[in-house]
Amino acid sequence: MTLAGPTARRPRGALRRTVAVLIALAFLFPFYYVLVTSLNSASQSSTLADLLLPHWHWENYARAWAAAPWPRLFLNTVLIGACTVVLALATSLLAGFAFGVMRFRGRGLLFALVMAVMMVPGTVLIIPDYIIATDIHWLDTYWIQIVPWGASVFGIFLVRQFFLGLPAELFDAAELDGAGRFRMLWSIGMPLVRPAMLIIALQIFLASWNSFLWPFIMTQDPNVQPVEVGLAAFAGADGTDYPGLAAAVVFTTVPVLAFFLVLQRHFVTGAMSTAGGVRG
């Protein structure tokens, strides 16, 4: 690629790179702004220099750190997210395989039902679900934060599309070999849908990480609450402590962000092969 007419392409390449860098900086700027805010004092006069340059008020971090049991909340977030991902991947794989490969009575109806689930506005479910959670004694537990999110329409849909895109002979051949259905899914289907699984895992984890109204209502005990609840509570209680809030945003967001950025390459590759599997 680099060999093909390097001289002709260079100017356009340079322009493209410059534009890309500018856009990337624009996208990253809010992160920088949070970082600077977390290091400035609450009530300094606001000039451009004050807003854009850090003043190294590290005590903001100490204050924010003391406001909630962050390590525990963080552990909860990771645990809830990881378990939700594992559960949702399992249910998506099974259901997606069934919808994509198997033929059974009522398949169309069930699939329509699954798609309809995605369109239900979540807010209205909170009170009925709260009553259900109370009845099955799941209030203030990890279960109520994991199981209801352990099935994903997005995941089922993506896996199904992926299987639809694969040549059917693959599975026919396996059946002739006498392999069981599950074995067929595990040994042939699973490796092929792995890229889609990565994207699903990403979406499920982000959704779990993003949720706050749900855990807010369903839990009361900091021993099981995720970090976003701590953050929202901190924002509600000390709404005017911007630097402290910014500090809390930094130390709650950076670890997960770093994790994703390290893995980002895999996600893009995953999406690239997934998008190949998406056939309207």
Partner: peptide
């Protein structure tokens, strides 16, 4: 460009 998507709305909308 992907980074913002990997942040919770509660946290970054504040900024």
């Amino acid at each position: 460009i992907f980074a913002p998507h990997a942040t919770p709305i509660v946290a970054t909308s504040l900024a």
